[in-house]
Simulated scan of single mutants.
Amino acid sequence: MKMLLSVLLFCSALCAQAAGLSLDGVKPAAIVDVRTPEEFAAGHIEGALNIPVERVGEGVSAIKGLNKESSILVYCRSGRRSAAAKATLEQLGYTHVVDGGAMQTLAPRLKPCTAKSC
């Protein structure tokens, strides 16, 4: 069951795009939750994709429409895994990775996109 959930969440990353949210006026091309599937299922930021930190490289590379210059926002529970995910993605050549840190502190900072922003 755990494997099936993981596969389903990973497959959803292939076609998903970030919700209409921005961080500091910038709309990321993808918002990636690097926690476990169980943590993600218990609650996450709207529009986020669940790609556990240990699979973030292969997961992000599978997202349709994303390239190495796309803005990618990563977050987790405390900030430790998101920092590791950012480092991994940068080692793979992604140039615009933002470490959002802990979900609890990131969520209030995200703003809906409007006609004037994003």
Rank of each mutant, 00 (worst) to 15 (best):
A107K: 14
A85D: 06
S6F: 09
V26H: 05
R35C: 13
K86C: 03
V7E: 01
F10H: 05
H96G: 00
V98M: 04
V60S: 00
E46N: 14
P37N: 11
Q17N: 09
S78L: 02
E46V: 14
P28Q: 06
T95R: 14
I31A: 01
T88Y: 01
L73N: 03
A30P: 09
T105K: 13
H96M: 04
H96D: 08
K2Y: 14
P108S: 08
I45M: 04
G59Q: 03
A87E: 15
V60F: 00
K86E: 09
H44T: 15
T36H: 02
L23W: 04
A19Y: 04
G25N: 06
E46I: 15
V97N: 10
A30C: 09
M3W: 01
M3K: 05
L89K: 01
Q17I: 08
E90A: 07
E69S: 15
V34G: 03
S61D: 13
L4Q: 13
I31L: 10
P37Y: 05
L66V: 15
A16V: 14
Q91V: 08
H44D: 02
E38A: 14
M103N: 06
V97L: 11
S6W: 02
A83E: 13
I51N: 04
G101L: 07
C15P: 06
P108I: 07
V53M: 12
H44P: 08
R81I: 03
V26L: 06
A62T: 00
P52M: 00
R55Q: 07
A42I: 03
N50E: 01
G79K: 10
G20A: 14
A41C: 07
A30K: 11
G25T: 03
L8Y: 01
A87K: 13
S22A: 10
G100F: 03
C76L: 13
